[in-house]
Design a protein around this nucleic acid. Structure first.
Length: 482
RNA sequence: GGCGAAGUGGCCGAGUGGUUAGGCAGAGGUCUGCAAAACCUUGUACAGCGGUUCGAGUCCGCUCUUCGCCUCCA
């Protein structure tokens, strides 16, 4: 059994073999922090979170680097327009640094809600200006870059493989139909900026050998990836819309300097659409995570995302998310029943489900199929628990261990009960259990005396308070609803 | 115009040649004081037209439609 990953560069599934055994280097393009994170960010980072979790589950040590782009690049094209972070700073009447810090915190808040594990290293572009300048110097020295009027451009002509990732290898084709007016100071219209001279009033700027200015957008990823992970990394992830030009430029910058392959496996996740159309920061239809979380359990959002494949587009709608919520509740319900320790004598074999799950995850992280395996397990477990023999202690333990690994550790769709720093919550939960014990005892008495009006009242009132009661053969159970 | 994806049952969403994806919703049933949950039964889908094949959502061609990229974007 081995892992296969779809490599965007070769456009085929390839068996995964890391450069160094037992150690995997992963770099994923992080957000530009000038606004709150939206559903698209969620899809991307949840997807790669599961990639990292699965690699770790498979026994690899993973070093996961995800940058924060806190240098504002430009609002409309590579050569003109306003710096996005600066623009936001103007709108919020503050300065760029405050903007990037504020939205960085906001980003992590949202990712934490989604159960996305923090990267091992989260470098910011502004903290790596010297590294970027050094990379440019190297490119200039080797003839891959040139300076004009304080701006430095990468010479696309100097790198024969330019465009190999996106398939945009024909210079003519690359230009025809382009919506950007080409700037005359470039030698070739496809050349892209490595360093830009700061215009009047530009706030985020640094000294460099060419001008006081700021780095080009594509540069930071190459510089930071190589700094923290080495000249060749195993996996580089990002959104599909960044294949061209961003990732093609990264390849050009890095490989021109090192002469080595920059990335072994390129992974690109597909986009989120809303009502069938693209959702984007620059469009007005972006669905902000903080807004969604007001109505929907973040883990439901996570589950919803994982119910489709990372390379498939995901269309967001209320009805689809609600359907996911019901489905996730079903899985949680099974787990709850399993934890209630009603041990029987019947054997239960989780192995077939485990194998299906592993097979799905090894097949390019096919989370929808992996989830289908969990639903089948859930159905089988419920049926077994309903049967007269029940489930043996051994079977129960095995199932719990598997669900903890699969649904908890890998997919991250189970609520973490009382993690570190939540001692207070645990304390409260214990008291609640105690109170519920009292209430359910009283209700059981009422039911025994056929005082159904009273028993129903207890149940209804508790439901209003967000606690649901279910009567089963073994007595009443309760759970907290959202 | 160029590059790249995709069109699956009421909805979401897997599936790269041959006995079932899965979830949600719907229908019937079992259980239950009722409810909820759970379980059982139930759906002959694959944009259209040709072609290859013993056999095609699954391969090939054409047509139609949608989406992304070619400007910052996960």
């Amino acid at each position: 059994m081995s892992l296969f990953i779809y490599n965007s560069l070769s456009r085929a599934k390839e068996q995964f073999e890391p450069l160094h055994p037992e150690m995997v280097s992963v770099y994923v393009c992080g957000p530009t922090v000038y606004g709150h994170a939206h559903l698209g960010h969620a899809k991307s980072y949840v997807s790669f979170d599961v990639v990292v979790r699965w690699l770790r589950q498979s026994g690899y040590r993973v070093k996961y680097v995800q940058n924060i782009t806190d240098v504002g690049h430009l609002t409309d094209d590579a050569d003109e327009g306003e710096d996005k972070i600066m623009k936001q700073a103007r709108l919020e009447k503050t300065d760029p640094m405050e903007i990037s810090q504020f939205y960085t915190r906001s980003f992590y808040e949202d990712m934490d809600m989604l159960g996305v594990l923090r990267p091992n290293v989260a470098p910011t572009a502004t903290a790596h200006i010297p590294e970027q300048i050094a990379l440019i110097e190297e490119l200039v020295k080797t003839g891959h870059a040139y300076e004009v009027n304080g701006n430095v451009y990468f010479s696309v002509e100097s790198f024969p493989g330019y465009g190999k990732l996106s398939g945009r290898t024909d210079p003519e084709a690359r230009q025809s139909g382009s919506r950007v007016e080409t700037r005359s100071e470039k030698r070739d219209p496809s050349d892209f900026a490595l360093w830009k001279k700061a215009e009047e009033g530009h706030l985020m700027k640094w000294r460099s050998p060419w001008s006081t200015g700021y780095p080009g957008w594509h540069l930071e990823c190459s510089a930071m990836s190589m700094k923290y992970l080495g000249e060749t990394i195993d996996i580089h992830g990002g959104g599909m819309e960044n294949k061209f030009p961003h990732h093609d430029c990264e390849i050009a910058q890095a490989e021109s300097v090192t002469g080595k392959p920059y990335v072994r496996y390129w992974m690109h996740n597909n986009m989120v659409t809303v009502n069938g159309t693209k959702m984007g920061k620059s469009l007005k239809n972006s669905v902000n995570l903080k807004d969604i979380f007001r109505d929907i359990d973040p883990l439901v959002v996570r589950f919803f995302i994982l119910q489709s494949h990372y390379r498939s587009p995901l269309d967001y709608s209320e009805t689809a998310v609600k359907a996911s919520a019901t489905g996730l509740e079903k899985l949680r319900e099974t787990l709850r029943r399993l934890k209630e320790r009603r041990t029987g004598s019947g054997a239960f074999d989780v192995e077939p489900f485990r194998l299906r799950f592993i097979e799905a995850m090894d097949d390019d992280f096919n989370t929808p199929v992996a989830i289908a395996a969990l639903f089948e397990l859930s159905k089988a477990l419920n049926a077994a628990m309903d049967s007269s023999e029940g489930v043996s202690e051994a079977g129960r333990q095995e199932a719990l261990a598997f669900l903890d690994m699969a649904a908890g550790g890998v997919l991250g769709i189970l609520r973490q009960d009382g993690g570190a720093g939540e001692g207070n919550g645990e304390e409260l939960l214990k008291r609640l259990e105690c109170v519920m014990g009292v209430l359910l005892g009283l209700r059981a008495e009422a039911r025994q005396n056929k005082e159904f009006a009273l028993s129903d009242k207890i149940r209804d009132r508790l439901l209003e308070a967000g606690i649901e009661i279910k009567d089963t053969k073994e007595g009443a159970s309760w759970s907290i609803k959202n």
